[in-house]
Measured scan of single mutants.
Amino acid sequence: KKIKIKIKVYNPETKEVLELEIEVSEEEAEELAKKLAEELEKKGYKIEEVEI
């Protein structure tokens, strides 16, 4: 079964909002969402919402 992940991120420095969407297997979904959120935060983005 495929799971659709939508991530909306906001960069306070540039006032930019990015929306990302990807489909992955159920097993990958939670781990991938967690890794993406961590990487984006390292780059200065503030995570507003992660929906699985």
Score class of each variant (00 low, 15 high):
residue 11 N to A: 08
residue 24 V to F: 04
residue 41 E to I: 10
residue 29 A to K: 04
residue 37 A to R: 09
residue 47 I to L: 03
residue 29 A to F: 03
residue 15 K to D: 10
residue 26 E to M: 11
residue 17 V to N: 07
residue 23 E to K: 07
residue 48 E to Y: 10
residue 21 E to M: 13
residue 14 T to I: 04
residue 35 K to W: 14
residue 22 I to Y: 09
residue 21 E to S: 15
residue 51 E to R: 10
residue 4 K to R: 09
residue 16 E to A: 09
residue 9 V to E: 00
residue 31 E to L: 12
residue 16 E to H: 12
residue 4 K to D: 02
residue 16 E to M: 12
residue 31 E to Q: 10
residue 24 V to H: 05
residue 42 K to E: 03
residue 33 A to Y: 11
residue 12 P to S: 14
residue 38 E to M: 14
residue 1 K to T: 06
residue 14 T to W: 06
residue 44 G to H: 01
residue 14 T to K: 07
residue 40 L to Y: 09
residue 20 L to W: 08
residue 19 E to S: 12
residue 51 E to N: 13
residue 45 Y to G: 01
residue 13 E to R: 15
residue 10 Y to Q: 05
residue 41 E to C: 09
residue 30 E to H: 14
residue 10 Y to L: 07
residue 48 E to D: 03
residue 36 L to S: 02
residue 38 E to F: 13
residue 9 V to A: 07
residue 52 I to F: 13
residue 13 E to V: 09
residue 34 K to G: 04
residue 33 A to E: 02
residue 1 K to R: 14
residue 28 E to M: 12
residue 10 Y to N: 04
residue 31 E to I: 08
residue 26 E to N: 06
residue 40 L to K: 00
residue 15 K to T: 06
residue 21 E to A: 11
residue 49 E to K: 12
residue 38 E to N: 11
residue 46 K to H: 05
residue 31 E to M: 09
residue 8 K to H: 03
residue 35 K to L: 11
residue 40 L to R: 00
residue 33 A to H: 04
residue 17 V to M: 09
residue 48 E to N: 09
residue 25 S to T: 05
residue 30 E to G: 12
residue 1 K to G: 07
residue 3 I to A: 09
residue 11 N to H: 09
residue 18 L to E: 04
residue 46 K to L: 14
residue 6 K to S: 04
residue 42 K to P: 00
residue 31 E to S: 09
residue 31 E to C: 12
residue 3 I to V: 10
residue 40 L to C: 05
residue 7 I to V: 05
residue 10 Y to K: 03
residue 30 E to S: 12
residue 47 I to P: 02
residue 25 S to K: 07
residue 15 K to F: 14
residue 12 P to H: 13
residue 41 E to T: 06
residue 47 I to M: 02
residue 46 K to R: 05
residue 24 V to W: 05
residue 34 K to H: 06
residue 44 G to F: 01
residue 32 L to I: 13
residue 41 E to S: 08
residue 24 V to S: 08
residue 4 K to V: 04
residue 50 V to A: 02
residue 29 A to Q: 04
residue 39 E to A: 08
residue 35 K to M: 09
residue 44 G to T: 00
residue 23 E to M: 08
residue 9 V to K: 00
residue 44 G to N: 02
residue 37 A to D: 01
residue 22 I to W: 11
residue 42 K to A: 10
residue 13 E to F: 15
residue 21 E to C: 13
residue 18 L to G: 04
residue 33 A to I: 12
residue 1 K to N: 10
residue 34 K to I: 07
residue 36 L to W: 11
residue 3 I to S: 14
residue 42 K to F: 06
residue 43 K to M: 13
residue 8 K to W: 12
residue 21 E to R: 15
residue 37 A to N: 02
residue 3 I to F: 15
residue 32 L to C: 13
residue 38 E to H: 10
residue 8 K to T: 10
residue 44 G to K: 02
residue 8 K to E: 01
residue 23 E to C: 14
residue 17 V to A: 07
residue 13 E to Q: 06
residue 16 E to Q: 12
residue 45 Y to T: 02
residue 50 V to K: 01
residue 51 E to H: 08
residue 13 E to L: 13
residue 28 E to Q: 10
residue 2 K to D: 03
residue 6 K to A: 03
residue 20 L to S: 02
residue 26 E to R: 05
residue 6 K to Q: 03
residue 4 K to C: 13
residue 44 G to S: 01
residue 42 K to W: 07
residue 34 K to E: 03
residue 48 E to P: 01
residue 32 L to K: 12
residue 24 V to T: 07
residue 16 E to P: 01
residue 6 K to T: 03
residue 3 I to P: 03
residue 15 K to A: 06
residue 15 K to G: 12
residue 31 E to A: 11
residue 35 K to Q: 07
residue 7 I to M: 08
residue 28 E to N: 12
residue 30 E to K: 08
residue 48 E to T: 10
residue 49 E to C: 15
residue 31 E to V: 10
residue 35 K to I: 04
residue 10 Y to E: 02
residue 8 K to Q: 03
residue 5 I to H: 01
residue 35 K to R: 12
residue 6 K to M: 05
residue 43 K to N: 03
residue 17 V to I: 08
residue 20 L to M: 09
residue 15 K to P: 02
residue 19 E to L: 13
residue 19 E to A: 10
residue 40 L to Q: 01
residue 1 K to V: 07
residue 21 E to L: 15
residue 48 E to F: 12
residue 27 E to C: 14
residue 18 L to K: 07
residue 40 L to P: 00
residue 9 V to L: 11
residue 48 E to S: 06
residue 50 V to C: 10
residue 25 S to A: 14
residue 11 N to K: 14
residue 46 K to V: 09
residue 33 A to L: 07
residue 26 E to Y: 10
residue 16 E to R: 09
residue 49 E to S: 14
residue 33 A to F: 12
residue 45 Y to H: 02
residue 28 E to C: 13
residue 48 E to C: 15
residue 32 L to S: 05
residue 26 E to I: 09
residue 3 I to D: 02
residue 49 E to A: 15
residue 25 S to Q: 10
residue 9 V to Y: 14
residue 39 E to Q: 09
residue 35 K to E: 06
residue 23 E to W: 11
residue 42 K to R: 14
residue 22 I to K: 07
residue 1 K to L: 15
residue 1 K to A: 06
residue 19 E to T: 14
residue 14 T to F: 04
residue 6 K to V: 04
residue 52 I to V: 07
residue 45 Y to K: 02
residue 50 V to R: 00
residue 21 E to V: 13
residue 12 P to Q: 14
residue 20 L to Y: 13
residue 51 E to S: 11
residue 9 V to M: 14
residue 48 E to K: 10
residue 2 K to W: 15
residue 50 V to L: 11
residue 42 K to D: 03
residue 31 E to K: 10
residue 21 E to F: 12
residue 3 I to Q: 07
residue 50 V to W: 09
residue 30 E to L: 10
residue 17 V to F: 09
residue 27 E to F: 12
residue 50 V to F: 05
residue 11 N to P: 02
residue 28 E to V: 07
residue 34 K to N: 06
residue 8 K to F: 06
residue 39 E to N: 03
residue 11 N to D: 03
residue 22 I to S: 05
residue 43 K to T: 02
residue 17 V to T: 06
residue 1 K to H: 10
residue 13 E to C: 10
residue 29 A to V: 09
residue 50 V to I: 07
residue 41 E to G: 08
residue 25 S to G: 10
residue 31 E to D: 04
residue 34 K to Y: 13
residue 46 K to C: 14
residue 14 T to Y: 05
residue 14 T to V: 06
residue 39 E to T: 04
residue 18 L to I: 13
residue 15 K to S: 07
residue 38 E to T: 07
residue 23 E to V: 12
residue 32 L to D: 04
residue 26 E to S: 10
residue 19 E to D: 07
residue 8 K to D: 00
residue 18 L to W: 09
residue 51 E to L: 10
residue 44 G to C: 05
residue 23 E to I: 06
residue 30 E to A: 12
residue 8 K to A: 03
residue 42 K to Q: 08
residue 5 I to Y: 12
residue 50 V to S: 01
residue 34 K to P: 02
residue 36 L to R: 01
residue 28 E to Y: 09
residue 47 I to T: 01
residue 3 I to E: 02
residue 13 E to W: 15
residue 41 E to K: 13
residue 45 Y to S: 02
residue 41 E to D: 03
residue 2 K to S: 06
residue 18 L to Y: 09
residue 7 I to Y: 15
residue 5 I to W: 06
residue 27 E to S: 14
residue 10 Y to W: 09
residue 12 P to E: 11
residue 27 E to V: 08
residue 15 K to L: 06
residue 8 K to N: 02
residue 35 K to T: 08
residue 23 E to S: 11
residue 36 L to P: 00
residue 38 E to S: 09
residue 46 K to N: 05
residue 33 A to G: 06
residue 38 E to Q: 13
residue 52 I to W: 07
residue 48 E to M: 15
residue 21 E to P: 01
residue 10 Y to P: 00
residue 19 E to H: 11
residue 27 E to H: 14
residue 18 L to S: 05
residue 38 E to L: 12
residue 21 E to Q: 10
residue 51 E to T: 14
residue 39 E to H: 05
residue 20 L to R: 02
residue 33 A to T: 07
residue 29 A to E: 02
residue 39 E to D: 05
residue 15 K to R: 09
residue 46 K to S: 06
residue 42 K to S: 10
residue 47 I to H: 00
residue 45 Y to M: 04
residue 37 A to P: 02
residue 5 I to K: 00
residue 40 L to E: 00
residue 10 Y to T: 05
residue 8 K to Y: 07
residue 22 I to L: 10
residue 38 E to D: 08
residue 20 L to N: 02
residue 22 I to Q: 09
residue 43 K to H: 05
residue 2 K to Q: 10
